[in-house]
Write a protein that binds this DNA or RNA. Structure first.
Lengths: 184, 184
DNA sequence: GGCGGCATGTAAGTTGTTACATGATTAA
DNA sequence: TTAATCATGTAACAACTTACATGCCGCC
């Protein structure tokens, strides 16, 4: 799988110039439900992209000033080219399902703990997503991209609702297994 | 994130001894909706696990015979220990959402193509999962693990249904954007 | 005066993919 | 007889994580 870090960066810079720290922060906030990047990828990649001519860097006064990156025309073209490329089939890895698959090795109470943690995490995610949605509806739409962003949020809401529904059914199943075990 | 390849292998071997090729095949079939491993990980890992004493290897006659691996008591303990460990927060990366987020850079027809492909792929997945479910209900349950496996399948069904529902809404949105563009 | 957040990076290590190589067996 | 699948690997590469290092700035 080809790396996509440069395109996340280009996408963010297509709105406005940012420094590396801001880029990381925005990825963490906006994309946290479906994407992540580490500093170890962002900073070296920024240098590389400058070398390629996809972005330019402007350093602040002296040594202390932060370095702000801006997208170039070529960068915009690269972004567009990538948008046209077929979406690579994502390889997701859900450890909780692996554990559930092998859960008969342990006892039901064990798995119940895992599912409860999973449920709590995704309840929180769902709340945040609903907040995002409300917020987005109140602010202006200068880049005419709100409908797309809303679609991404809706994806998050739908999948997280599916996670919650599954968690509740799984807990049901696990609890009835526990009761049966006690009764034996 | 610690690697989980050894535990997938242990889980499969906890049912019956297998060779490396079979292990890969079973992962591709049973876990394809939420897990994947390559030969490049499986074969070296098998050797390593033998060295650790988690599994034993028995080679067939001569050079041609295949090597069958079996789980040891220690391996069973390692598997149980891993089952108890908290589930690591999965970092999923969905390129289609990244593209949707930045879709205003291109035109709606572009994204429509991507979503249509996504929809078709997950319709197929959903069909396969439903087949799995029916099949599981007809066969015996010697390891008393069918309820757990069913729960994993249900996870797949629920999330894929969510994907389909999202795809349809997204297509709706994209088509109305296309019509508006034409009308301009 | 210290804590948290801002800001930039790197080195080392781990994990995972891809492409290739080899040869046996089996079914059309 | 030839294509597909079985079966086992490895080398090179690419991607990613983690932990650390450094220093600034503002505020309580």
């Amino acid at each position: 799988m080809a790396k996509k870090t440069p395109y996340v960066i280009l996408g963010l810079l297509s709105e406005e110039p940012l420094d590396g720290y801001d880029i990381k922060k925005r990825i963490d906030i906006r994309f946290r439900f479906f994407w992540n990047e580490s500093y170890g990828q962002i900073y070296p990649e920024l240098r590389n992209m400058v070398k390629l001519g996809w972005i330019t860097s402007e350093s602040g006064e002296g040594k202390k000033g932060k370095t702000v990156y801006a997208i170039t025309d070529q960068g915009r073209n690269e972004l567009k080219t990538w948008l046209h490329l077929p979406v690579e089939t994502e390889s997701l890895r859900l450890e909780i399902l692996l554990k559930m698959y092998f859960a008969s090795i342990g006892d039901p109470a064990l798995m119940r703990g895992h599912v409860e943690t999973f449920l709590a995490a995704h309840q929180k995610d769902l709340m945040i997503l609903n907040m995002f949605k409300k917020e987005l509806e109140t602010i202006e739409d200068p880049y005419q991209n709100h409908q797309y962003i809303l679609s991404v949020i809706d994806f998050g809401i739908k999948t997280n609702e599916a996670y919650l529904s599954w968690s509740q059914e799984a807990l049901h199943m696990l609890r009835s297994k526990e009761n049966r075990d006690e009764a034996k």
